[in-house]
Structures are given as C-alpha cells and as structure tokens.
Design a protein around this nucleic acid. Sequence first.
DNA 1: ACCTATCGTTTACAGTTGTAAACTCAGTTT
DNA 2: AAACTGAGTTTACAACTGTAAACGATAGGT
Lengths: 146, 146
Amino acid sequence: MPTTELTATITDAEWRVMRIVWTLGQADSHTIIDLLVRQHDWKPATIKTLIGRLVKKGALGTTKDGRQYIYHPLVAEQAAMDTALTTELSQMCAMCRGKSFVHAIDETELSQDDIQTLISHLQKKLTTAPTAVSCDCLPADYEGSC
Amino acid sequence: MPTTELTATITDAEWRVMRIVWTLGQADSHTIIDLLVRQHDWKPATIKTLIGRLVKKGALGTTKDGRQYIYHPLVAEQAAMDTALTTELSQMCAMCRGKSFVHAIDETELSQDDIQTLISHLQKKLTTAPTAVSCDCLPADYEGSC
DNA sequence: ACCTATCGTTTACAGTTGTAAACTCAGTTT
DNA sequence: AAACTGAGTTTACAACTGTAAACGATAGGT
C-alpha cells in the first residue's frame, strides 16, 4: 500500500511509467518496457533510464525476484494526481481558478458518480463561499492591487 | 487584446512574470522588477532574463516608450490557465480525473458565482455522462487492461 | 560635450529532463 | 567450461530552467 510522501517531482515522461505500474499494481521491467514501447516511440534504453530515476527518487520500490526486480509504486496514484493538480492550480491567479475549473470540467469526460460527488461537494461549499475571490497576483500592499 | 496561440510553454518562474503583466494589463520592466523583487528573493537580473525569454517565446509583446519598453501580454491569461490545466489533466489516468477534481475543488477557494456555474455545467453534463470512465493507462489491446 | 544611470542584451553555469547507447554481471545454453 | 543473453547500472548529451553577473548603448543631467 503506497503512501510515501515524495519530495522530488515525477516528470512527464516518468509519469507514463508510473501509470503502468499503478495500473498493474506491480510489474517487472520487461512488462513495463513492452507496454511503453508500444505506446510511445521510446527505445527500451529510455524506459530503463526512467525506471532507474523513479527508483532513485523513491517513487518505485523493488523486490528481488531471482535475477530481476519486481517494481511497485511507493506513492499512491490518486495522491500523486491530487498533488500535481493543486500544485498547478496554486501557481495560477486565485481569481481565475474557478473559470479554469469550468473549462476543465467541460473538456473532461466524467462518470455520473463523479459528477454527482462534485455537485454535492459544490453545494456544500456554496454555503460558506465568498461572494468573490480576489486576484492575488500582486503584493497585497500594491496601490492598484486589482 | 491577447489571443496568440503559444507554441512554447510558460515555465513556473516565467508564470510569475506573466501574472504581473496580465494583472496590470501592461507594465515597464521597472514595475515588473519592483513587484517581483518584493514577492520573491529574485535579483533584478533574474527577472530581466525571464522577461527576455518571454518576449522571445512570444508571450509578451513590446512597445517602445522613449528609452524603454512597455510590455504587454500576447496570450490571454484565462486561455493560458485553461491550457495548463487540461494539459496537466491529460497526462493523468482518465479514470482518476474525477476524484482529482473533487480534491482540487475541496482545496480551492471559489466564489458563489463560480460554484453556481460549475454546478449548472455539471448538471447539464450529467445528462450525457457515462456510467463509468475506464482507465486508459495501458494499450487498448492489453490482456488485463484494467 | 561628457559622464552616468539605466534598460535591454549577452554570457554563464549548474541542475533537470528527454532520449539513448554502452557496459557489467549473473544466470542459461551448448 | 565458454559463450551468450538479458536485467540493471553508467555514461552521454543536448535542450530547457532557475538563477544571476557582466556588458553595451543611450537618454539625461551638468
């Protein structure tokens, strides 16, 4: 059960590797390489490098299995996704985040259950929501701060 | 009115510069540097570099004003945010995106208006939503594909 | 007309990322 | 036992990023 808190970030290319291992639960390098060679134009050597980096940064753990390793995630997928998304959002203007959510939700396929969960969370949130969220792009004390 | 479609991406550090210019509408380098030196521990030279890179990659435009330049955005803030967010999402497992939205929305301060817009978009979306969204982390033809 | 304060440009440099070949070592095959 | 094969490790290398100093030109003051 992966729950480690990661210091280093998982890069875009590494993310592809993690998705394989997350989905399979665990996998040997042959499996990972085989699947990724089919999805991308990557050479096996490239994937080996990515696996190595993920092990080094603590995102993947290993178990010896005879001559080779079985890799398994040391971070939970949902947690990694949540962190990535909120990190991305945190660097954007607070005032504009709502509109970006609208755009993202319009563009994303969501299940009925997810939509219902979102609606109920939003309805609850509405009861304590501010009338407006102000822009936080300038220092608080700036004269014309939005 | 900025509407250019950007090929290059805006990096994290550059994003800070853009937010200043987006918010002010336009600004000379003195203003940008002044504000960012206060927000971060950056040296003026660092900010000059970032401005230069943003101009080169077409995110900022310039107008000569005597000896100096006035910088203005060539890309719209909301569009840049929307792109950044959907790009981030597109690299994550389709099945898990809904849960990440829930988490992100829980963590983000939203205005009443934004929440209401989100709810109404979601309600509309619900009418055509699938029962479930399946994992897209493995090649479609993979034996145990989720 | 000369000096100086700027503003923008050039150069710098280490760390990260994408991409991949080369190498090493331990089992497996003949 | 010698050769081979495949897994993991090392090395490579260019582009991109974060961070910043140095430099060159030019508008303004004296």
